[in-house]
Design a binder for these strands. Structure first.
Lengths: 243, 243
DNA sequence: GGATAATTGATATATATCAATTTCTTTATT
DNA sequence: AATAAAGAAATTGATATATATCAATTATCC
């Protein structure tokens, strides 16, 4: 099984003009861990890294595309362009996060948009290459299925959280998500706007700001511009569970 | 490729005490279409059909189970037991609908409950058998992945509909879903309560009833007890799209 | 210095909650 | 089998509340 660390790769790190096997650092999903070195090499043969500037669209909803996106550097948001010009942000991705098309095996029409929040470097892998490996390596196929079922669970969870919690619970969820799942450090600096945070929480930016203010006066959090520090995680957890 | 029609099977149809290969009628999902006759036989070897009475729980949320449920007869609801005793119904299943665990390849803890709305006859297939076939038959593996990605798209759609539409739009969605996806006939007789319909639409039963009443006076629908007839599908479609 | 984002306030509205009544379904009883 | 009794489900009304909308002000960033 491949175990590679991208730090060791000068080409990718310094020049940023290729996508070599070292891109597939061992990460949360372990999606590529089941691949042999040869298979990883075949996957990334001739692949180029792509650079996006902050604000650029990487994948556009309702568009046909066969690419699996693997973020190498920077932050991007995955969101649904819903009704009445409202956006619903599903996740903030970074590092070695992989987004396999929600419809990778179903006509390839994407049902979400991915856009860069900061400058982003990422690999675009053609999903037909994945399907080929999928046939050859059963462990890898199971990894992909696991990845999808995990995605499914997250969606189900989001469905309940967004439909059955009051605003304070949803804001607490968003704050905890950002701290524990995206930035993984405590005072964290947001590359996203209040509007984005509201879109993560399914509410208007005004409502989001008001609740953020309450959390501040209750000393659950401390904010300074785009920096947020969570002071009382217990309290937020409890508000999240509320009702 | 197997193409079997369950009507032809006396054992299953009359005695209802086995689960033979004919159970896997060609259906919407075509999940089993990629299997050879031999493979289907191996899958259902020694399997028994199970009978549930209306109200019984088939699969319980937060419980470990390795079964894939395949409904042979009757109606069941798939729902999440959410916060504050609220339920969110994800789908009404019937016929040859197959529910592969949202976590089939991820620890097997179910994140939804399935319970019988009417008396239900169904097959429970052990997912380890599926995984084995999964390795042997790549087409089948792809079918399963397609099934999952389709599930994913449906969830995403539900997420947007439930969070970004007003109540009339959600009620219209529920009515159209019942007519076109579940019962597939126009005056249809509901095996579910108003509470269930409300749980499908993410609102209280009182709110649901009020909007149903409005639709009735607008002559979009006609209701008589548990029978509902959709008179103006165009109108409902338009309300569904609203905003 | 002009645009964009963030905040605050006042108000409107969608939706839930609570309570009461009516209808329907199930169970029990003679 | 018929009917009464009990329970559950459906409906309707009055009210409370969560949340959005609109408008104005202040802060922040190229």
């Amino acid at each position: 099984m491949a175990k590679l660390v991208s730090k060791d790769c000068k080409l990718c790190k310094d020049k940023r003009d290729c996508c070599c096997m070292n891109c597939f650092e061992v990460n949360q999903t372990n999606l590529f861990e089941a691949l042999s070195i040869d298979q990883i090499e075949s996957l990334i043969l001739d692949k180029k890294q792509i650079h996006y500037k902050a604000g650029e669209t990487i994948i556009k909803q309702n568009t046909s595309s066969t690419h699996v996106v693997c973020i190498k550097e920077g932050f991007a948001k995955v969101y649904v362009e819903g009704l009445k010009n409202k956006s619903l942000i599903l996740s903030i991705i970074t590092n070695m996060d992989v987004v396999t098309g929600g419809s990778m095996f179903n006509g390839n029409i994407r049902n979400y948009t991915i856009s860069a929040l900061t400058d982003v470097t990422c690999c675009l892998i053609d999903s037909s290459d994945l399907v080929e490996l999928f046939s050859k390596n059963n462990d890898f196929a199971i990894r992909i299925l696991q990845h999808h079922t995990k995605q499914n669970s997250l969606l189900l969870n989001k469905l309940v959280n967004l439909t059955q919690k009051y605003m304070p619970g949803r804001v607490a969820d968003t704050l905890l998500y950002l701290k524990n799942n995206v930035f993984k450090q405590n005072p964290f600096i947001l590359p996203i706007t209040r509007q984005d945070m509201a879109d993560l929480s399914n509410m208007t930016k005004e409502s989001f700001v008001r609740i953020l203010h309450e959390f501040k006066t209750s000393e659950f959090i401390r904010t300074e511009g785009h920096t947020i520090e969570i002071l009382d995680e217990e309290a937020l957890q409890s508000i999240s569970k509320n009702g």
